[in-house]
Design a protein around this nucleic acid. Sequence first.
DNA 1: CGCGGAGTTGATGATCTTCAAACATGGTGG
DNA 2: CCACCATGTTTGAAGATCATCAACTCCGCG
Lengths: 221, 221
Amino acid sequence: MLLKIDTAGSRPTDGHLAELAGERVCWSEFKYRRGTELFGEGEEADYVYEIISGAVRTYKLLSDGRRQINSFHLPGDVFGIENRAIHRFSAEAVVATKVRIAKRRSLLERMQCEKAGATSVLDFVTQNLHHAENHMLLLGRKTALERVAAFLLEIDERLAHPNVMDLPMNRRDIADYLGLTLETVSRALSTLRDDEMLRFEGTTHRQLVLLDRKRLAAQDV
Amino acid sequence: MLLKIDTAGSRPTDGHLAELAGERVCWSEFKYRRGTELFGEGEEADYVYEIISGAVRTYKLLSDGRRQINSFHLPGDVFGIENRAIHRFSAEAVVATKVRIAKRRSLLERMQCEKAGATSVLDFVTQNLHHAENHMLLLGRKTALERVAAFLLEIDERLAHPNVMDLPMNRRDIADYLGLTLETVSRALSTLRDDEMLRFEGTTHRQLVLLDRKRLAAQDV
DNA sequence: CGCGGAGTTGATGATCTTCAAACATGGTGG
DNA sequence: CCACCATGTTTGAAGATCATCAACTCCGCG
């Protein structure tokens, strides 16, 4: 929360890469070290972010420190588009992360002028809402095992079903995403391993191989 | 899910719906009996709804019947605006409910043509997202008592702090909204009553009086 | 080498769920 | 008008799931 933004190595570019917004939104690149804050809840929403590499968690806190992670953002994801001028949650780099940043106002203005642009911002927010609705179902009504299975399948999907899945986040992050404790997440993963639905690759237990996506999906409901 | 839409007492207006993307968005009124379905998950999203009286729950189901209610809609609320053509959840009347309905396409087209309109659809979806983010925090990280207190304050707020709060929904609905069981909700309400934060009015236990909103807010965190 | 961060696993315990029973309410039909 | 029944609510007792507390391992790194 109190960490400073780490702009070491920032490298403004002459961004043509705004597929989302049409032509002339100017993007620049920034790097964040592991654990540093991109923005905090309540801060002004000045920028829109696109992840180049790494991973970002967005979350809310209760006053006593309990944390709920809304979502993980992986390379290719765009986030930070807020309709209001104030961020409703905080964002931190899960690992060393490189992002492209654009001024939010200029982007939104451009997008709202054009009909196609307006649709795509709306699409974007709608996608977030869709994800949130599914996640409410998970948080409100699924068991620990179902949650962890759903998490694995979600990440697997977003990484395009790699042979070896490389988790950028630790067990506590996963737990705070799934509304569990890190021990429960660890136990669920061990159970899935014992049931031969996954296997750990290497020593770190951050790389894993999904052995049976069908049965994993059946854990979920 | 399998309930038929109840159009008893529907009052089809004389063909105004046939007006296409004309100048007026044409609303017509419908009534739904308690428990009837306005639309189901996966159905085409043809209409936008505004509640005149009554209440609506929107929810998702797991295959074994577990239910998560996303939100309750009360008089004045507009819902059913979906960016995609398919509803992502079901909607049912909690009690006898009167709504105004407009063709979704004509409405969206109108709203997207005008800059102000585009902003207001976006605002609308953003508000839903905001609510969903807060609700994920509740579902993932709050205790039963905190959830119930938060629920009471939310309804209180949306009813503009009435002296006597009239709950349209039963304990099971509340439970499925808060990710609890109906018994746990009942117990939490009894606890809050015993601690003199609320009082039941009348006999039904659906009307209640918040006696100390400050302390209720402190239950929440 | 020692240290800290991360993960696993075990024992215990708290919270919430499940199962069950009792009671109130409101509507319906005899 | 009352009996009757479905629906809704509360409360109790027992049980399951998950959280908490704690110990231990493994790894990377100064």
